[in-house]
Design a protein around this nucleic acid. Structure first.
Lengths: 245, 245
DNA sequence: TCAAAAGTGTTCAAGTTACACCCATGT
DNA sequence: ACATGGGTGTAACTTGAACACTTTTGA
């Protein structure tokens, strides 16, 4: 199937014409980000104090209206950068929320994205602008509008995606141990995983690079550090391999 | 986790105030529907001749701008009804397309939905308004804007969803045979499935009702007709069962 | 009576789960 | 020397894949 943008090119004489579709009502478009992090045992959520009315000072996801000339992905990226200072981050579009009454401030269509970031300190996230705070996902305060629903769906989607894509690594530091990785998946799937079977499975995929370093912070023996080998992974993908945990 | 709309109620004094968010640019919002059908061996796509500029008379997905006071799902439902006359149809939101340059007519944010309908004749779809035509998905004409990309993604998503949700039945008549159902999944997954293993698997789920009727249109012996037992399925769902094909 | 599709059962391979023992090291 | 978490191997089981024979009936 041809998935190129379109075989029908834009005729030149259209380019400088006034816009079509006049008289159609326009709406506000926002992007909201569900920012996940992981800390030892817990999946976490970065929440913010809303700065504007309505619902000023209530807990909220971070979001912003989409600007003129800005793609949706760009908007998500900008929002995340403004809120955390991070730019190389996994962002994924989840769902579009458009109930007419979802925001009493006006009708707003909101596109939800989730972001997976390696945990950083609360105060590094503020950038002077926002009061950000990490919460355990299962222990987070109630949020404004339909943001609770967004978080719920995002968590579910994250869990699904993590089964078939190697996105868990995005939530860990570059170097991590197998026990760490296992705790992450246990938090995502909300169930215990067998230590031995987990190691076997993840190592058999042959997408981790074993480093010559140990992390002794959780045991006397120390656990080996690994790195996700993205190049190797992508190479394998092309040869019919697919990630599955 | 609390997924109620919000624990923060809208303060009464806000309700009659002028809208917030003044000065923010608004954009056009459209919903586009990828309408799938199934005919004997082939997954099909219902396409339309565009009635307006730009790209008038080119093949396109059916779509419409979202109206004031209309939820996104309602818009999708309306579009589908206007185009096919069908109203009890599976509709699922897929993805939101928002590239700034995706429509030369103006900046339009488009939310794609797929619809699964039991095949009906082309001319029943017109409703006097549109020139609709079914195409095999793999043999469809090139579409305007980013509609080719939408179709591609929708097909992929449909395939994924069909593995874990009993949505295949939406594409068949109420009464169907196992060979028919198998052909459908073969078209979705684009590979042959073993006749015997397929029957075994689908019947072992115990969500089909065997009818006392045969379809003799494809063989002398005739194939038994079945019906998807939605109530039974939902009941099983609550008891931890999950569909998997 | 035979061709063509439909229905059913068995066997084998692969993947998943359960589980036990040894290792390294700071105290 | 021992307690604690980390590393590996093996057996039982479940699931999915491969495959062959019998049944029905219109032509």
């Amino acid at each position: 199937m041809d998935i190129s943008n379109s075989s029908v090119k834009i005729p030149k004489h259209l380019k400088d014409l006034p816009k079509f579709y006049s008289g159609v009502e326009k709406l506000l478009i926002a992007v909201d980000c569900i920012i996940f992090g992981f800390d030892k045992n817990n999946l976490k959520l970065l929440l913010f104090k809303r700065k504007v009315q309505p619902f000023k000072d209530n807990w909220t996801l971070i979001g912003s209206f989409v600007r003129k000339g800005e793609n949706l992905d760009q908007a998500a990226k900008r929002i995340l950068y403004e809120a955390t200072g991070l730019s190389e981050v996994l962002l994924k579009q989840l769902f579009c929320y458009g109930r007419t009454d979802r925001d009493p401030g006006d009708r707003v269509i909101s596109i939800a994205y989730y972001a997976l970031i390696p945990l950083i300190e609360d105060d590094e996230c503020t950038n002077g602008e926002y009061k950000a705070q990490w919460f355990e996902v299962d222990n987070a305060p109630s949020l404004i509008l339909d943001h609770n629903e967004m978080v719920f769906s995002a968590r579910k989607k994250l869990c699904e995606n993590a089964k078939y894509e190697p996105i868990g690594f995005e939530l860990l530091p570059q170097k991590f141990t197998l026990p760490q990785l296992r705790l992450l998946y246990e938090a995502l799937f909300q169930r215990k995983l067998d230590r031995r079977n987990f190691s076997k499975k993840i190592l058999s995929m042959d997408i981790l690079e074993k480093l010559d370093e140990k992390d002794k912070s959780t045991s006397t023996k120390g656990a080996n550090l690994y790195r996700f080998d993205e190049l190797k992974y992508k190479d394998k993908l092309e040869n019919g391999f697919y990630f599955k945990i």
